[in-house]
Structure formats: structure tokens, C-alpha cells
């Protein structure tokens, strides 16, 4: 019996020790994660400058808006010719084309990632 209680108290001792150890581990892990996050933030500065995809994104912006407007204008012109509703097709589709161009630019710039709900 005495042996048993001794065992128990030892168990309790061990469990409190383990709890303390795991708490320390957790806090260490948190601090490490924090430090890593800070490191990554520091790294992100210079590496993003030499990142080819950032430059590529800049080059994408140059034509996206124009392309949307051009396609809108062409569809509007073709509809006007085909249905004889000049100038309404041109007016409507130029505006829609402009909107499509703006969406293209926003997507290219990464403001809006694409159709669907906004990612968090």
C-alpha cells in the first residue's frame, strides 16, 4: 500500500514536471514561430525585389486593360453590323469591355484573385 502511494506521488510529481516541460516547450515553440515569422518578414523585403514573378506581374498590367476594351469594341462593332442596331452594340459592349479590362488588371495585380468568394 505504502509502495502504491509512493508510486502515485511520484507519478504526480512526474506529471507536474511533464506539464511544466510541455508548457515550456509550447512557449518555446511559440517564440520560435514568432521569430521565424519575423525572419520571414525581414527576408521578404529583398527577395521580393529580385523575384521574377513581381516583374512579370508588372509587365502583365500593360496590356490587360487595352485587350478588354478592344474585345468589347470589336464585339460591339460586329453586333452593330450584323443586327443593324448601331450605335447601341458599340456603346454597351465598350462599357462591358472596359469593365472586363478593369477586372483583368485587378486580377493581374493580385487585388482580386478570380471569380468566387474573396479569399481570407
Amino acid at each position: 500500500m505504502a509502495e502504491d502511494t509512493g508510486d502515485k506521488s511520484e507519478n504526480r510529481n512526474r506529471s507536474t514536471e511533464e506539464a511544466a516541460l510541455s508548457a515550456r516547450l509550447q512557449s518555446l515553440g511559440e517564440r520560435l514561430a514568432h521569430q521565424k515569422g519575423a525572419d520571414r518578414k525581414v527576408e521578404a523585403g529583398p527577395s521580393s525585389r529580385s523575384d521574377p514573378s513581381a516583374l512579370a506581374r508588372g509587365f502583365r498590367l500593360s496590356t490587360e486593360l487595352v485587350a478588354g476594351v478592344l474585345v468589347g469594341a470589336f464585339i460591339g462593332w460586329a453586333l452593330d453590323k450584323w443586327l443593324g442596331i448601331s450605335p447601341w452594340g458599340m456603346i454597351v459592349f465598350l462599357l462591358i469591355g472596359f469593365a472586363a479590362g478593369v477586372i483583368n488588371v485587378m486580377r493581374a495585380a493580385g487585388v482580386s484573385t478570380g471569380p468566387g468568394p474573396r479569399p481570407q
Binding site: 496590356t63 490587360e64 487595352v66 485587350a67 478588354g68 474585345v71 468589347g72 464585339i75 472586363a100 483583368n104
Partner: peptide, 14 residues
């Protein structure tokens, strides 16, 4: 939907 279709069609141009 119209805007999305136009945006899709403008891809090969840009």
C-alpha cells in the same frame, strides 16, 4: 457573366 466572358475572350489578345 458578360464581363467574365469578355475577360476570357480578351486573354489571347493581351
Amino acid at each position: 457573366v458578360f464581363i467574365e466572358v469578355l475577360s476570357f475572350l480578351s486573354r489571347p489578345i493581351s
